[in-house]
Design a protein around this nucleic acid. Structure first.
Lengths: 215, 215
DNA sequence: CCACAACCTGACCATCCGGTCAACATAATT
DNA sequence: AATTATGTTGACCGGATGGTCAGGTTGTGG
């Protein structure tokens, strides 16, 4: 028991390490392939090649393609939820919403594949994570709407419908990931530079913050 | 010649009518299936069933799945381009941008499948319409950016980066089509009513117009 | 009415894909 | 060292899919 506890804490086991590493490699490859080809267009063989493993090995760690896909989507969902921390402990809309925009823009830049997988999943009717939408996301949304409504009631911002404001924030920030290819093409075929990302973030922030009457 | 011209104008021919009608039915079905299943997930059999035609008939009108898909994407692109008419003949940002938001929100409601197909295509790297992005869309974007910049120079609106403002407009309006399922789920599983669409449009308009300093 | 062209479609095929499995290799345990 | 548990992989399979085609039907022009 003592030994088991120690093992699970320090993760000394070679076996555990192998499993952890392989699952990570597979999930990374899967995220990219699912994002670039869609669920239907993605093949286990493609994912295997990108992960540098034989296809049969994928099925050892993830029984089915859908199970692998489900795990990818869940991982993304977790990242998204944690992005709202700045939203919560903010004294007002300037810090709260401004910080949320910055956090989500940063995620769009760092996890473009994940954002695309999420978008794809939702666009196809959320066949895999419908229950998440109906429980976790719904609760999350209700909570943030309450925060925004409180700010409105306290006169800290213009009386904007909280629900549609949230949708606007999601739409604009995720657009830079989901439509990254289009943006890149319109940028002369080159990815946005650090300065351009900063510019995008500032533009979104300024328009929104002015739009809700806090500038 | 005279007869041909008349035929092509009035479309009397039964043959012509059959072809026109079948192509329309197939394209409508294809748009829906491509939107709901993605390119890879869509099957010619599914499209055929939805169109009420045998699969082989699809290949009579469209030689390959990709050719059919290409036509669907092109049709959508045309609709999008024509949506900017209100943008052009406007005296200032209030009418121009406000009208553009209304037009695009209306399109999102009326053509949700088309919007999703477009989003999917771009997310997967625009394998089919990359040339459109680099020519037509780029020119279109440059033109509208010039209009916005002129308004800024004339002091008709706050100095907002025209490019990112356009991206914001696209993102928000298309979000209501592309993420319609998520929005519907967060709306208690029911589609938005007329009033709710109006509310969404008004919220987007008010936040943006205030955000660019014209209210 | 005839002949030609356009349209229609059931049956078929080569290919690909997700998933399985048996045999083997390596690490952990006793 | 021996045994067991875990990880690895090439080969294989059933089913689905995009696409073909021959033979039929329907419209059209002469």
């Amino acid at each position: 028991m003592t030994q088991n506890a120690q093992v699970s804490r320090i993760q000394r086991g070679r076996r555990t390490e192998i499993r952890r590493e392989n699952e990570r490699v597979i999930l990374d490859a899967a995220e990219k392939v699912f994002a670039e080809a869609g669920y239907g267009g993605a093949t286990m063989q493609l994912i295997a090649d990108m992960a540098g493993l034989p296809k049969a090995n994928l099925h050892y760690y993830f029984p089915t393609k859908e199970a692998l896909y489900r795990q990818v989507v869940r991982n993304i969902f977790e990242i998204w939820l944690h992005a709202a921390d700045t939203f919560d402990h903010a004294p007002g809309p300037v810090e709260g919403i401004g910080g949320y925009i910055e956090a989500k823009m940063a995620i769009s830049r760092r996890h473009p594949f994940g954002s695309k997988v999420w978008a794809s999943e939702v666009m196809h009717g959320a066949p895999v994570i419908q229950d998440y939408l109906e429980t976790t996301l719904r609760d999350w949304t209700a909570g943030r709407m309450a925060v925004i409504q409180r700010w409105v009631d306290q006169g800290k911002m213009a009386p904007v419908d909280p629900r549609h404001l949230l949708y606007m924030l999601w739409a604009m920030t995720q657009h830079y990931a989901d439509f990254g290819h289009q943006i890149e093409t319109l940028n002369g075929g080159k990815p946005l530079t650090d300065a351009q990302w900063q510019e995008a973030t500032e533009t979104v922030k300024s328009v929104i913050l002015r739009g809700i009457g806090v500038i």
